[in-house]
Computed example of a mutant assay.
Amino acid sequence: MQTLRILTAALLLSCLVFGSSSAQVKRFSIGPYIETGAPTGDFHDTHEVGWGAGLNADIKLIAGLGVTGSVGYMHFNGKTYMQTDPVNGTSSYSYPNVSAIPIRVGVKYHFFPLLYAKVEGGVANFTNNKYRDGAAGIFAPGIGIRILMIDAEVKYELWSRNGSSGFWGLKAGINF
């Protein structure tokens, strides 16, 4: 939880410092996003498609290179399986929901004015169940397109903690 507070404070501080000094040349942008994630591998066997939302910030550096950061919320519903046993009858098992607050930072490179690739890392702080208490490391490469204020990205995000859980994601946002 302390890590979440520190990273959130750092993101807000960078928004204030870089936003006020370079807003006129559009070197800084911030805005909300929504995203969806389709689980892969074992995570697909136990969880449904997830959804999330958050706040993203971008700072342009030099020659198409920039840094990015985001804080959000992501939720995956657990699947329920019915099992029929001739001796014990029918029983069901439900996997617990997974909710997390992902905090990501990374680098972004614009190949063309509209097309970019980015790599992010960070932590996903789990919020809702005792099976996944704590945090997982995040690795998330992606490719996207930004037209005026609209940003859309396709990515693969991997959460690693005592094994790994991955998902293909689609993220869309507005940058001011």
Rank of each mutant, 00 (worst) to 15 (best):
Q2S: 15
Q2T: 15
Q2K: 14
L12F: 09
L12C: 10
L12A: 14
C15G: 14
G19F: 03
S21K: 12
A23C: 09
Q24D: 14
Q24G: 09
F28E: 01
S29Q: 08
A38W: 13
A38E: 06
A38F: 14
D42Y: 04
T46S: 15
H47K: 08
E48T: 08
V49G: 05
G50S: 02
G50P: 00
L55P: 01
K60E: 14
L65K: 01
L65Y: 10
G66N: 01
G66I: 03
V67W: 02
S70P: 08
F76C: 01
N77L: 10
G78T: 06
G78H: 08
T80A: 08
T80N: 01
Y81H: 11
P86I: 00
P86W: 07
N88L: 15
T90E: 10
Y93F: 15
S94N: 06
V98Y: 09
V98W: 08
I101H: 02
I103D: 03
R104C: 03
V105I: 15
V105L: 14
K108L: 11
Y109S: 09
H110M: 09
P113Y: 09
L114N: 13
L114H: 15
A117C: 08
K118Y: 01
K118T: 10
G122Q: 01
V123P: 03
N125D: 12
N125F: 14
F126C: 04
F126D: 01
T127P: 05
N129V: 00
K130M: 11
Y131T: 05
Y131W: 12
A135N: 10
A135M: 07
A136M: 00
A140V: 02
I145T: 09
I147R: 08
M149I: 13
D151C: 03
V154H: 00
V154M: 04
K155C: 09
Y156T: 01
E157V: 03
S160G: 07
S160F: 08
G163W: 05
G163Y: 02
S164F: 06
G166F: 04
F167P: 00
L170N: 06
K171S: 10
A172S: 12
G173F: 02
F176A: 07
